[in-house]
Design a protein around this nucleic acid. Structure first.
Length: 504
RNA sequence: CGGGGUGUAGCUCAGACUGGUAGAGCGCACCGUUCGGGACGGUGAGGCCGGAGGUUCAAAUCCUCUCACCCCGACCA
């Protein structure tokens, strides 16, 4: 293979296909026998475990506790909140039978359930039923619960990590005595997500509120963090909802307040999913494959033993072992370094490329020459694949965590620049908006557009006009300019700033 | 659910119009050369051609039915 890049096609040649190829080349996941459901392979799941652990720490630091609720939701629970039902009904998987019986060599569902069970698409209603039992008094509040779980949404158009029928996520559910406190909670988690995406995933996001049309079914207000992928489309990376008393009323979550009166609690919910892995791929990946931000990399360092002659094998292996033990003394982002020695019996070049494609942050080559000079050859995924440096062991020990921090910072910088560079503040009217979001080559669209930050009249009826351009209002950023001007869509006087973009 | 398409080796596909012993590349196994390096040569394993029925001396190929998947729409974290 003489090709320059490990991934074909490149991002600019065919972005969606590039994405699929990276998922494959980095061995993250594959499709399964069940339509729309993916198998997450060890390298992909390792990233998820790190996302889980580091986000879980933050969830707990902000006072929440983990619990677990059933996979199945009785249909009647689900029916309670009207908007919620309408929002999710079309994509629900429903269990109607239990028990299989053999008939003529086939298995037939035999016993119909009295009440069908919905496989949770989200758990507001079933958690609400528990909350109703757990909460009696204002002294039981706030109730701050999180669940790590899988959910099922029967999507028409699945795409690995970005939109699968079953996905893994965390869903926080909290109950509060007052609107103000619930809103504070919503904003707190919104900010936790923003910080997590930027600090851990090196993925810059725009935090903001959703318009009424884009709200979570049943919510009073929805906030999201919106990230820009390298095809300049938006990815909703995490959402936080203030649910008002809607779910409290439908699930009958009442409490006695300090004055001795009955009142309904105010609830929130918030979540992020395995979609984040898709976000990491499309934020940092290049034409050689994935680049895993060091803070979520299953291995921070991969050691590649170089064995030019079989008789050197023992010596090299021993040296690699020693190097690993030395590096494991270091810590990064509050944890011990994760160092892997790739001892597989295969050609060095191929092995090296595999780890480039998987996006391991640091590769260290060690062979007889390095043993002699007491050093290792250092390669970084944020630099060219031929860009190497011989580093003395002592220096390596002192520098390794610093190099990881640099890589992490470089990824964030690059992504920030990309976001800034492709966020236009120059669009003034609908025509300009239209030309901004229209590719030059219609039959095979090139990467085009980006985010448009502009004025919006905040009239829900007018939002539909954006459908023709295949764009949506991603959010009304928290950071508002406070100036007034003309709405990009309608030309009316407007004070609200909004982000317009195509989205996943 | 509307429109289009495809099912042949682990993967990507050719063969089908015009029926006659199942093919290529990659991957895999082994041997040799090479190797601080995504190598090269040789040998080999691997498929009752999505399923059922039909036409025929003969079906991957023609016909009927069926199942599955993919793409474009509507829907979406």
């Amino acid at each position: 293979m003489a090709s320059e890049n490990a991934i074909s096609p490149t991002r600019s040649e065919d972005y969606p296909e590039w994405y699929q190829q990276v998922v494959r080349a980095a061995d993250l996941a594959e499709t399964s026998a069940v339509r729309g459901c993916m198998v997450i392979k060890p390298w992909g799941y390792g990233i998820w475990e790190n996302i889980q652990r580091k986000l879980d720490n933050r969830i707990k630091e902000t006072g929440h506790q983990n619990a677990y609720f059933p996979l199945f939701i009785p249909l009647s629970f689900f029916e309670k909140e009207a908007e919620h039902v309408e929002g999710f009904a079309k994509e629900c998987a429903v269990v109607t039978h239990h028990r299989l019986e053999q008939k003529e060599g086939r298995l037939i569902p035999a016993a119909p359930l009295e009440e069908p069970l919905v496989v949770r698409p989200t758990s507001e209603t079933i958690i609400g039923a528990s909350f109703a039992k757990w909460i009696q008094s204002y002294r039981d509040l706030p109730l701050l619960i999180n669940q790590w779980a899988n959910v099922v949404r029967w999507e028409m158009r699945p795409r690995v990590f970005l939109r699968t029928a079953e996905f893994l996520w965390q869903e926080g559910h909290t109950a509060h005595a007052t609107r103000e406190e619930a809103l504070r909670e919503t904003m707190l988690m919104h900010e936790v997500y923003r910080e997590f995406m930027e600090e851990v995933l090196a993925m810059p996001v725009i935090p903001g509120e959703k318009t009424a049309g884009e709200r979570f079914p049943g919510a009073v207000s929805t906030f999201s963090v919106e990230a820009m992928m390298q095809d300049r489309k938006a990815l909703q990376a995490g959402t936080s909802h203030y649910l008002g008393q809607n779910f409290a009323k439908s699930s009958d979550i009442k409490f006695v307040n300090e004055a001795g009166d009955f009142d309904f609690v105010h609830t929130t919910s918030w979540g992020v999913s395995t979609r984040l892995i898709g976000g990491v791929i499309m934020t940092h990946g290049d034409d050689d494959g994935l680049k895993v931000p060091p803070k979520v990399a299953p291995y921070h360092v991969v050691i590649l033993p170089v064995i030019p002659k079989p008789e050197a094998a023992g010596e090299v292996r021993e040296y690699a072992e020693k190097l690993r033990e030395m590096l494991r003394e270091s810590s990064f982002d509050g944890e011990r370094l994760s160092v892997h020695i790739d001892n597989r019996d295969m050609r060095g070049g191929e092995k090296n490329w595999e780890w480039i494609k998987k996006g391991a942050p640091i590769r260290l080559e060690v062979g007889p020459r390095d043993i002699k000079s007491e050093s290792a050859m250092l390669y970084r995924r944020d630099k060219g694949h031929k860009d190497k440096a011989s580093v003395n062991l002592n220096e390596l020990k002192n520098r390794i965590a610093g190099v990881l921090s640099e890589i992490q910072a470089n990824y964030l910088d690059t992504a920030r620049q990309y976001l800034k560079q492709h966020t236009s503040t120059e669009i003034r009217n609908f025509d300009e908006l239209k030309s901004y979001f229209t590719p030059k080559k219609l039959e095979k669209p090139e990467i085009h557009g980006g985010f448009v930050l502009g004025k919006w009249c905040n009239d829900q009826a007018e939002e539909k006009r954006l459908n023709d351009l295949k764009i949506t209002i991603r959010c009304l950023p928290l950071q508002q300019s406070g100036t007034s001007g003309k709405c990009i869509v309608t030309g009316r006087e407007a004070t609200v700033d909004a982000i317009f973009a195509k989205a996943y």
